[in-house]
Amino acid sequence: MKLQHGLGGLEGLEGFPLDYEKRVFVEDWEKRIFGIHAAMMGLSASLRDSVPGYDLDAVPTTFNTTWTWAHLRSGAEAMHPFEYFKFRYYEKWLGGISAYLVEQGYLTQEELDAATERFREQPQAQLPDRDAEAVDEQVLDYLRRGDTPRRGPATPAFAVGDEVVVRNPPATEHTRLPGYLRGHRGRVERVFEGNYSYFVSTGGDGLGQPMSVYIVRFEPDELWGEETERAAGPLYAELYETYLSAGSTRDGNR
């Protein structure tokens, strides 16, 4: 099954319009959505484990759960496919953030609907004004220092030069595996230092616990067959170990 957020390489999409918009933010409200996401990242409970020194207990906020890029992606990608294709990029972000806040009990759907209706009727209405100096300081500290999903030393099952085959795990609500790579052979070009966690479990997809990550090289003929363009170069993909199985090595052994 192809998921709506993993259509790369799917045939029959020639008639769909392409948008080459290069601006990061097209509307002012998109900047606010990005800011909300950044603030949630800077207050996420996951920072207690990723980087020492974030004093989250000193920040006067009721936000006390984990929010990462994984949650943003999985929330947006859980949207109904028709809704996913209908909305713009930051509208998908807004959908994922809103669903998360309701799911975690920070607000109710009724409160969200009422606020939406209020600002539709009064677009210039003032937003709630709260003393957020300590929150701002924490978010700025996060933006300066960041965090990391790295968890301990690497324990790779594959080495540089190994041939691997991309697995075809069951489709779930979220994946980091491009659909067009499934079932294809590639060769390991690099093994990243350290194991890397993924902050949400994708169930049958295999992501969640820390594991090794690789850069895998795919030859164009392997991926596109007779449709390969002349002088096409190789494709490189960063893939979690759970997405790979052993192929033949350089000397032909398994």
Rank of each mutant, 00 (worst) to 15 (best):
M1W: 07
K2E: 04
K2F: 12
L3W: 09
H5K: 06
G6T: 10
G6N: 07
G9S: 03
E11H: 10
E11N: 09
E11W: 03
G12L: 08
L13H: 06
E14M: 09
G15V: 04
F16I: 14
F16C: 13
P17A: 11
Y20I: 09
Y20T: 14
V24D: 05
K31D: 00
R32W: 12
F34Q: 09
F34G: 00
A39R: 03
S46M: 10
R48Q: 15
S50T: 10
V51F: 04
D55V: 02
F63Y: 11
T65H: 11
W69I: 11
A70P: 03
H71N: 14
H71G: 07
A76L: 06
A78I: 02
A78K: 10
M79S: 10
H80N: 15
F87D: 09
Y89L: 10
Y89N: 05
E91T: 00
L94T: 00
G95P: 01
G96I: 01
I97L: 11
S98K: 09
L101G: 06
T108N: 13
Q109Y: 08
L112H: 13
A115E: 09
E117P: 01
R118K: 14
Q124C: 05
L127Q: 10
P128I: 05
D129I: 09
A134S: 12
D136W: 02
V139P: 01
V139C: 02
V139H: 02
D141R: 14
Y142R: 02
R144C: 03
R145L: 14
R145Q: 13
R145T: 13
R145G: 00
P149E: 04
R150E: 15
A154R: 09
V160I: 15
V160S: 06
V160M: 07
N168L: 00
H174S: 13
P178F: 04
G179K: 02
G179E: 08
G183A: 05
G183C: 04
H184G: 00
V188T: 10
R190N: 02
V191W: 09
F192W: 14
E193L: 06
G194P: 05
Y196R: 11
S197F: 06
Y198R: 03
T202Q: 06
G203N: 09
G203F: 08
G208D: 06
P210A: 07
V213M: 12
R217W: 04
F218T: 07
E219A: 09
E219R: 07
P220A: 06
E229I: 10
A232G: 13
G233F: 01
G233Y: 01
P234D: 13
E238Y: 03
L239A: 01
T242Q: 10
